[in-house]
């Protein structure tokens, strides 16, 4: 049989024996050194690594800021954001704002185009479920209209109604409701 010959550069029999012995000892010195050092591991469920501020985890939405403009959904490369709301004049009645974490790859591209800076990636990362359907999360903290929005909306409606009753009345009542909530 033709066997491959993989001989090292021969440096003499004694030297080879010595090198084998010595380099093993040197390696064992290093492993021994770490044997007496404190382990680096973190016992996960009890201890946690600090999570930096820029961590890209599960999204959170500042819902009162959101203007339902679809910029984030358009920026998403995997189309995982979908939202639904009904516009009542200037106010929004939220139905849903879901992120499909089956698809999301946490690239944070959705947060940059947001004109109101209202969608962020947070520090939560544990996405553990028994069912894939549970990974479609709704980011809304309330459904329908918020209390303030409802108030403003009703005020505007009332103003509109009174305005309709007395067409010559000035629009003074509606002015505060029209003022943009966010600067």
């Amino acid at each position: 049989m033709v066997a491959p010959t993989h001989t090292l550069k021969s440096s003499g029999w004694f030297n080879e024996v010595w090198l084998g012995f010595w380099t093993a000892l040197v390696g064992m010195r290093i492993t021994l050194k770490y044997f007496f050092k404190k382990p680096e591991t973190v016992q996960y469920p009890e201890e946690r690594m600090p999570i930096p501020d820029r961590y890209r985890g599960i999204h959170y939405l500042e819902q009162e800021k959101c203007i339902y403009c679809f910029m984030c959904a358009r920026a998403c490369p995997v189309d995982c954001i979908s939202m639904e709301a009904v516009r009542h004049g200037k106010e929004l009645e939220w139905v849903s704002f879901t992120v499909d974490y089956n698809r999301c790859m946490f690239c944070e591209l959705c947060t940059y185009p947001c004109p109101k800076d209202c969608i962020h990636e947070g520090k939560e990362f544990a996405l553990v479920t028994y069912d894939r359907r549970d990974l479609v999360l709704d980011l809304l903290s309330w459904k329908g209209m918020s209390a303030e929005a409802k108030q403003r909306f009703e005020a505007a409606e009332a103003a509109k109604a009174s305005g309709a009753a007395a067409k010559d009345a000035p629009k003074a009542g509606a002015a505060p409701a029209d003022a943009p909530e966010h600067s």
Partner: peptide, 17 residues
């Protein structure tokens, strides 16, 4: 072994490299 690294300690038997 005190502080020795392999590079300098190797080959006391006159390596013919």
């Amino acid at each position: 072994l005190r502080k020795q690294s392999v590079d300098s300690a190797a080959a006391p038997f006159a390596a013919r490299s």
